[in-house]
Design a protein around this nucleic acid. Structure first.
Lengths: 116, 116
DNA sequence: GCAAATTGTTTCGGTTCCGTTTCAGTTTAA
DNA sequence: TTAAACTGAAACGGAACCGAAACAATTTGC
């Protein structure tokens, strides 16, 4: 079942979620970092630098740097692939799962607050 | 009527919209820029630097710089308030209205593509 | 009239991100 | 075995952003 929503509602929802993210004193992720994080947590593993770069249509260093940043925030972790040691497998973390879960709850909460 | 949506659907929708934004070769706006742009286009005018800074809980230079960037992209415009010449009034543009409208349509399109 | 307050901008030093290029380590294939 | 291909990371210069402070222009209040 698809979600029933008009453009004006969609935009208002987007604004409210953006505002709540910005107002938080937590450092906001960039658009790219968010796309990477959500892909790691929503798409089935395994996730590699190369695979994420292809999925987002960006260069590999973009992924590497985003993983550096989000790794420091403990939102993701990296592990060398033992079967093909050229690969790095990106894994989910407890902190990252909580972050994503809270984000989803935030969307729902803003959706409920929307006017008619 | 509020929007019927489960957290997993909300997250998947967010991911898809983020991915489509990132994959576009157009320069992505930052989270703050997006929040400012949407506030200008969704909240009733007049909009001032001070007002936007208060609404987003950020400092005024953040607003000034975001307006510089989005002004160069012709997404917003600035005009000195003739009644109180200390104020700058931020106005909508045709290009900005189209951008926001397309963004809204994009959300709806991704919502329709969502799996069950 | 004139000091104080208000508004938006600029400057400062520092951080982060970008694309491109280069690199080290690993695997593949001749 | 050894050259080629592949993977992720590091190095580089440039651009954008950050918070804090200083700034010019304007209005307010005494």
């Amino acid at each position: 079942m698809s979600i029933a929503m008009r453009p004006s509602q969609a935009l208002r929802l987007w604004q409210q979620v953006m505002l709540s993210q910005v107002r938080d004193d937590e450092p906001d992720l960039t658009m790219r970092q968010t796309a990477i994080l959500f892909t790691i947590y929503l798409d089935p593993p395994p996730h590699t630098v190369r695979g994420l770069a292809a999925r987002l249509n960006v260069t590999k260093p973009v992924i590497t740097r985003a993983l550096d940043t989000m790794g420091a925030l403990k939102l993701v972790s990296r592990h060398r692939d033992e079967l093909d040691k050229r690969n790095v497998l990106i894994k989910r973390t407890v902190e990252g799962a909580l972050f994503v879960e809270r984000f989803g709850d935030g969307i729902i909460a803003r959706a409920h607050e929307l006017p008619i």
